[in-house]
Amino acid sequence: MAVEKWIAIASLGLFVMFVAQMISISVYLVHPAYDIDPSSEMKEFISISIAPALVLAGSSFMLARKYGSRLVGSLIIAGGVVTIVGMSYVSTLIPKIIPAYIVPELTLSPIIFTISSIPVIVIGALLFRLKPVPKRDYFFDR
């Protein structure tokens, strides 16, 4: 596989990891066993998963945009769809969380990352529209 395919796979993995982290922290905060700071946990989850996922999705798009790739486009679209579905589930869990643990990072993250996953889906779909540029044999094109 080419580098952009592996980067797209890593991006999808990080999108899935972010959704899993958000769901796990939200489920935990419904009935916490001990006291935690959800604000710092959210900042940690954003910095180690969703921010690199967005950068990797953009990088794989930039690498594949010259010739288009259905696989890379599908992986990028899947990352955006996973994020939208996961954030909608997290939004349903937020009203069940104990009010002492509701922080702005927890309430705004599903909205922000649902909105930010829409451009991810769009750039993935752009790879389907691109026509492959034929590879040229420069030695014989003289």
Rank of each mutant, 00 (worst) to 15 (best):
S109V: 13
M1L: 11
K5N: 13
V3H: 14
G79R: 02
G13W: 03
L14C: 01
K43W: 09
S26V: 00
I112S: 03
G58T: 10
I50R: 01
V85I: 15
P132I: 00
R70N: 15
I50K: 01
Q21I: 03
M22A: 06
R65W: 01
V16M: 09
Y34P: 02
S69L: 08
P95W: 05
A8R: 13
M62S: 11
R136M: 13
I121V: 14
F128R: 07
M17Q: 09
I115M: 14
I36S: 10
K135P: 05
G68H: 10
P119Y: 12
I25Q: 03
G58F: 12
A8G: 06
K135R: 09
V103C: 11
I9F: 08
V120L: 13
M1T: 05
K5M: 13
V3F: 14
E41L: 07
L71V: 03
P104E: 14
K5P: 06
L71W: 13
R70G: 14
I98F: 12
K5A: 08
L29E: 01
P38Y: 02
V72S: 00
S69M: 10
Q21W: 05
L127H: 04
A20L: 00
P99V: 06
K5T: 02
P110H: 12
I123A: 02
I84S: 11
M62L: 15
L93E: 04
Y138G: 07
S11V: 01
V55W: 10
G73M: 07
D141A: 05
A2Y: 14
I84W: 10
V27S: 04
H31L: 12
F140D: 09
F45W: 06
A100P: 04
S11E: 07
D141H: 08
F61T: 05
Y28D: 02
P104M: 14
Y34V: 04
D37V: 07
V55M: 07
S47A: 14
Y28S: 02
I77Y: 12
S117K: 03
H31E: 13
M42Y: 06
L56E: 03
S11L: 04
V82E: 08
A2E: 15
V81G: 11
I118M: 13
M22S: 06
S49Q: 01
L71C: 12
L71E: 14
M22I: 00
I118T: 07
F15Y: 15
T107L: 01
